[in-house]
Simulated scan of single mutants.
Amino acid sequence: MGATSSAERDGTSSIAPEPASGADASSNSSATPSGDEQGEGSTGEEVDNGSEPGLEMPEAPEEEVESLTELLTPVRSGPLVSTPLPAAASARGRVVAGYPAFLRPVRSSQVETTSVSPSAGRLQVALAGTSALAPEQVLVAFRTRLSGRGLQEQDAPVTVAGARAAAFRRGDSTVTITVQARSGRTSYSVHATLRAGRD
Rank of each mutant, 00 (worst) to 15 (best):
T69V: 04
P74Q: 06
A91P: 05
G44W: 00
A141V: 03
L123E: 05
D155T: 04
G129Q: 09
R143S: 12
R104Y: 05
A89Y: 00
S119D: 13
T130Y: 09
M57T: 10
A88C: 06
S77I: 02
S77R: 03
L133S: 11
S131D: 01
V138P: 12
V96E: 08
Q154N: 03
A163P: 03
L80H: 08
G150L: 06
V111K: 13
R122E: 15
Q110H: 00
G162F: 01
A166D: 14
A165Q: 06
A165W: 02
L103D: 11
V65D: 12
A101T: 08
R122L: 10
G41K: 11
R104Q: 04
L71A: 04
A166W: 08
E136I: 00
E153P: 00
P100S: 11
E153M: 11
D36T: 12
P118W: 04
S131Y: 04
A167L: 09
G78L: 02
E112R: 09
P157T: 01
S147Y: 10
F142I: 09
Q110G: 01
S67D: 13
V160K: 15
P105C: 06
P105A: 06
R92T: 07
E45D: 11
G162E: 08
A120F: 15
V81W: 11
Q152W: 15
S34E: 13
L151Q: 07
V158T: 12
A87C: 05
V81D: 14
S115Y: 02
T83G: 09
S147I: 03
A60L: 13
G150A: 08
G78H: 01
T113I: 01
E56C: 14
E59G: 10
A167P: 02
P105N: 02
T113Y: 06
S147W: 10
R143M: 14
E64C: 01
R169H: 07
A132V: 00
S119W: 08
F102G: 14
V95D: 00
E52T: 02
V111C: 07
S51Q: 15
T32W: 11
G148E: 08
V75S: 12
R145N: 10
T114K: 03
A101Q: 14
S34P: 06
A88P: 08
T130W: 11
E62Y: 12
T43R: 15
A165L: 02
P100A: 07
G35M: 04
V160F: 14
G150W: 05
E62H: 13
L72G: 07
A134D: 13
D48M: 00
A101I: 02
F168H: 15
D155N: 13
D36I: 12
L80G: 07
L103I: 01
S108E: 12
S117Y: 01
V158A: 15
A167V: 00
S34Y: 04
G93Y: 02
A89H: 03
A134G: 06
G35D: 07
P105G: 07
G98K: 10
L71T: 01
A167F: 02
E136Q: 12
R164T: 00
G50D: 09
S115D: 09
S82H: 11
E64L: 05
L72V: 09
A88F: 06
T114E: 08
A128E: 09
R143T: 10
A167G: 02
A163E: 11
L133D: 10
A97N: 03
E45Q: 12
A163D: 07
G150Y: 00
A97V: 01
V111L: 10
G50H: 07
